[in-house]
Measured scan of single mutants.
Amino acid sequence: DVEPGKFYKGVVTRIEKYGAFINLNEQVRGLLRPRDMISLRAENLNVGDEIIVQAIDVRPEKREIDFKYIP
């Protein structure tokens, strides 16, 4: 289970104008929005990159997770 405030290692699987999709594993995926990329620009991300993200909002009923990148 993903808990708000905890840090996780994930892999960038898709990049859109509104953010990057980060997979923690095959069943868990969330969104890293540009406003939550402190000191990281979306254009510096590539599909396949491994990054550490913090879960900031977890909505299990919608199967949605928002992440924040903190260097």
Rank of each mutant, 00 (worst) to 15 (best):
E26F: 14
T13K: 03
L45K: 05
R14S: 12
A20V: 15
K9R: 13
I70H: 09
G19T: 08
F67D: 03
A42D: 07
E16Y: 10
G30A: 05
R59Q: 04
E26H: 13
A20R: 00
Y69S: 03
I15G: 00
P34H: 14
V12T: 01
G5W: 04
E64W: 14
L40V: 09
V47S: 01
I52W: 15
D57K: 15
G5Y: 05
D66V: 13
P34K: 15
Y18H: 07
F67G: 03
F7N: 05
E64M: 10
K62E: 08
V2G: 02
R59F: 04
A42I: 15
E26Q: 12
R59H: 05
R59Y: 05
D49Y: 06
A20S: 04
R63C: 13
V11T: 11
L45H: 05
N46E: 11
E16T: 15
N46K: 15
L24Q: 00
K62R: 11
D36K: 04
A42T: 15
R35C: 11
V47N: 01
F7H: 04
L32G: 03
E16V: 13
I56A: 06
Y69H: 06
E3T: 13
I22N: 00
V47H: 01
I22F: 06
I65W: 08
E3I: 15
L32D: 02
N25Y: 08
G19R: 07
A42S: 12
N23R: 12
R29T: 13
P60W: 13
D1L: 14
L24A: 01
L45T: 01
D1Y: 14
G10N: 00
I15W: 02
E3P: 05
A20I: 15
D66C: 11
R59S: 05
V12M: 01
E50T: 15
P4T: 12
D49P: 00
P60I: 11
Q27L: 12
V53M: 07
R59V: 03
P71L: 08
V12G: 00
P34S: 14
M37F: 06
A55Y: 04
G10R: 00
N23V: 11
L45A: 01
E64L: 13
S39T: 10
I70K: 06
A42V: 15
Y8V: 02
I15K: 05
Q54C: 12
F7M: 08
R29V: 14
I15A: 01
I65N: 04
P34Q: 15
G5T: 03
N44E: 15
I56E: 03
F21P: 00
V11A: 02
E43T: 10
V11M: 07
V11Y: 10
E16I: 07
K17W: 15
E43R: 11
M37C: 09
L31W: 04
D49S: 05
V58A: 04
K6R: 13
D57H: 14
Q27K: 14
R35M: 09
G10H: 00
E3Y: 12
F21Q: 04
P71W: 10
R63H: 12
F7A: 03
D57V: 13
E3C: 11
V47Q: 02
D66S: 10
I52K: 03
A55H: 02
A20Y: 12
V53E: 00
F7T: 05
I22V: 11
K17H: 12
N23W: 12
L24F: 05
K68W: 06
I38R: 10
I15F: 03
G48C: 06
Y69P: 03
V12E: 00
N23G: 06
T13M: 06
K17I: 13
E3R: 12
V47T: 03
Y8H: 01
L31G: 02
N25F: 09
Y18Q: 07
G48W: 04
D66E: 08
E43F: 11
T13C: 09
I56T: 08
N23M: 14
R35L: 09
Q27F: 15
L40R: 05
E64Y: 13
G30T: 02
E61L: 08
D1A: 14
I52N: 02
K6Y: 08
E16W: 13
L32C: 06
D57Y: 09
V2A: 04
P60C: 10
G30Y: 02
L31D: 03
G5Q: 03
L24R: 00
R63D: 09
R63Q: 13
N25G: 11
L45W: 04
G48D: 01
N44D: 15
I65G: 04
I22M: 01
I70A: 09
E64F: 13
I15Y: 01
I51R: 00
G10K: 00
I51Y: 02
D66Q: 09
P34I: 15
E50F: 15
V58M: 05
I65K: 03
F67C: 06
E3S: 11
L40D: 06
E61V: 08
P4H: 07
I15P: 00
G30V: 08
A55V: 15
A42W: 15
V58Y: 09
G48E: 01
I52M: 10
E26G: 13
K62H: 08
D66P: 01
E16G: 14
I70Y: 12
F21V: 13
R59C: 08
N44H: 14
P4I: 15
V58K: 03
D1T: 14
Q27R: 14
F7K: 05
K68I: 11
N46M: 13
I38S: 12
K6Q: 09
Y69N: 03
L45F: 06
L40C: 11
G5S: 04
N23H: 12
E50P: 08
Y18I: 11
R33M: 07
V2M: 05
I38K: 11
E43V: 12
V12S: 00
R14N: 04
I56R: 05
K6C: 12
E26I: 13
T13Q: 04
I56N: 02
K6A: 07
R14I: 05
V58N: 04
A20G: 01
R41F: 10
K62L: 13
N23D: 11
A42N: 10
I51T: 00
I65E: 03
D1W: 15
I38P: 10
E43D: 14
E16D: 13
V2N: 04
T13Y: 05
E26V: 12
P34W: 15
A20L: 12
N46G: 09
Y18F: 13
T13N: 02
V2R: 02
V28F: 08
G30E: 03
R59G: 05
G10T: 01
R41P: 10
E61N: 12
G48I: 00
N44W: 14
R29F: 10
G10W: 14
R29G: 14
K68F: 08
V2W: 06
F7V: 05
G30K: 02
K17Y: 12
N23E: 14
G30M: 05
I70C: 09
I52F: 08
Q27A: 12
K68Y: 07
Y8A: 00
R63W: 09
V12K: 00
E50S: 13
A55E: 02
D66R: 14
K62I: 08
D49E: 06
L45N: 01
R63S: 11
R14M: 06
S39P: 15
R33E: 04
R63L: 10
D36L: 06
F21H: 06
S39E: 13
A42C: 13
G30D: 04
Q54E: 05
G19V: 09
V12L: 04
K6M: 09
S39C: 15
E16R: 06
F7P: 01
I70P: 03
A20K: 01
Q54L: 15
Y8L: 02
R14T: 06
E3M: 13
K17V: 11
L32R: 02
L32N: 02
Q54V: 10
N44R: 10
V11C: 08
E3G: 04
